[in-house]
Design a binder for these strands. Structure first.
Lengths: 165, 165
DNA sequence: ACAATATATCTCAGCGCTAAGTAATTTGCT
DNA sequence: AGCAAATTACTTAGCGCTGAGATATATTGT
């Protein structure tokens, strides 16, 4: 009936009763869950010679359109990392022959990143296990709970400006 | 009415209609929120010459007991990082005079880590802004929604073995 | 036309983490 | 008591990210 964050909250109220630590009930759990999930997923990535960053790029290209093509700027917005991080991710993926970089014909500043056949095969091989693991991690919640949870998280994301537009 | 994850789910159903991507409705949002929150909190840490890792150690010591003392193993369990990460965090904090390391008198393998006066003052200076920012980030949810959300996240954490015991 | 501004990508130093392995100490089994 | 297994903390190589800034191209306002 108590997780790690309950202990943390009890400790705060003991050591700093003047501090209202209530936001941590949500924030602490968000952080902790994200970390737990990351650790679990990392195993699957490693089994396919991947890491979370590379998976993220390959998966984003895979789902974006039938050409599996996107610009670094698009990848950056999707991944919420800095442009430097994307450049380095692409360097690694290109060196392994999983994506190609081609200058845009219509805008000299732009680069088109495309999934290679090898990259497509790899991401399609990883996806089923990936989704299966995510499902397994969610087994503790009913379908109804998952739905409500997803809805509340969406409300929160929207309030923080995470729009599609 | 739609956040980034809604777009992602629509893309998957378009490009891989055979794949049941539904767990991403929760997992994708968890990851995205954790990343957004981290980015916001990082600013506050930097304003106090801190980073998330250092803040985490100082805050854990601050709340743990009146002596503000813990072992590296305890810090490791709380932070969910590897032992090497804790060693390095402590190296940095010790070099800045924010914590001290002292060998345990009862167990030769154990080290006692204690917050210094300087460390205590620093963490107490950062905490109010930290909680205020967390509160601000949660403004999009009603008190009721926050409560329900925290409850569901706890259920999920417990199902993943995040026990206090 | 042209200067100013905006956009897109890349570079790099510094930091922090993991994974794997080491060394020292304690615990538990027989 | 004696030894294998577990625990604790540390070390290091390699990776990936941020933040700041460089470079090149495109767009805007006059």
């Amino acid at each position: 009936m108590a997780d790690h964050v309950d202990l943390v909250l009890a400790q705060w109220s003991e050591q700093r009763p003047d501090l209202d630590a209530s936001p941590m009930a949500v924030m602490g759990r968000l952080k902790r869950l994200a970390q737990l999930v990351d650790t679990e997923l990392r195993r699957n990535f490693a089994a396919h010679d991947l890491d979370a960053a590379s998976f993220d790029v390959l998966a984003t290209l895979r789902r974006s359109n039938a050409e599996h093509r996107l610009t670094p700027a698009g990848l950056m917005r999707s991944a919420m990392v800095t442009s430097g991080a994307i450049t380095q991710r692409l360097d690694r993926l290109e060196a392994r022959g999983l994506v190609t970089r081609r200058p845009s014909e219509t805008d000299g500043r732009v680069v088109q990143v495309t999934l290679t056949d090898k990259g497509l095969k790899l991401i399609d091989a990883v996806l089923p296990t990936h989704v299966a693991i995510e499902n397994k991690l969610l087994e503790g919640l009913s379908a109804k709970e998952r739905e409500t949870l997803a809805g509340t998280l969406r409300t929160l994301l929207e309030s923080l400006g995470d729009k599609t537009d």
